[in-house]
Amino acid sequence: MADTLFLILSALTVACGLLVVLNKNAVNAAMFLLVSLVGMAGLFVLLDAALLAFVLLLVYAGAVVALFLFIIMLLDTTPGSFKSFNKISVAASVLGAALLGLGIMTMFKRGVLPQTAENVPVPTLQDYAAQLFTTYLLPVQIVGFMLLIAMLGVIVLSKRFDSKKEAAS
């Protein structure tokens, strides 16, 4: 059951990821990103991280994709085309593909990876809380402060400052 689910969900995630890249319309790309996120959340559930799947759906599917759709709506959405290939792009693609293939090959050939995860208890909400409020308390505070700074930055970036009015006052 878990194996079949893994196959279905990973195929869904990867196929929708491909469609994000290949789709010419930005709105359709955002919609396929949404489906890909749902598949990813399913994979998280398979990995015993149901809480993370929930957070992923809330933050990404609920907020990020909606934000993307708003911005696409605000800006013009002329269907784009693909770049004509220039030399640097081709070189970067070939180099990246070669490195990635090498990495995957090395991982399958000589990677010593932990294989069994049977006697590990499923992490509960309590475990997450215990980690977040003891070991990772300082990062939590810093992340909260960073969210505040990001909010201020977005306000400053998207507000129109009238230079004449400021000079007059």
Binding site: L47, D48, A49, L51, L52, V55, L56, V59, Y60, A63, V64, L67, F68, I71, L113, P114, Q115, A117, V120, P123, D127, Y128, Q131, L132, T135, Y136, P139, V143, M146, L147, A150, M151, G153, V154, L157, S158
Partner: peptide, 29 residues
């Protein structure tokens, strides 16, 4: 994180999700 039997990776993903939300907001602005 799952196959090593620890929770650290999951907690790290929490932080990554938070940072990604902030990053998306600033980038789109």
């Amino acid at each position: 994180s799952k196959f090593n039997g620890t929770l650290d990776g999951n907690v790290f993903v929490f932080f990554i999700l938070t940072i990604a939300a902030a990053e998306v907001a600033v980038g789109l602005a």
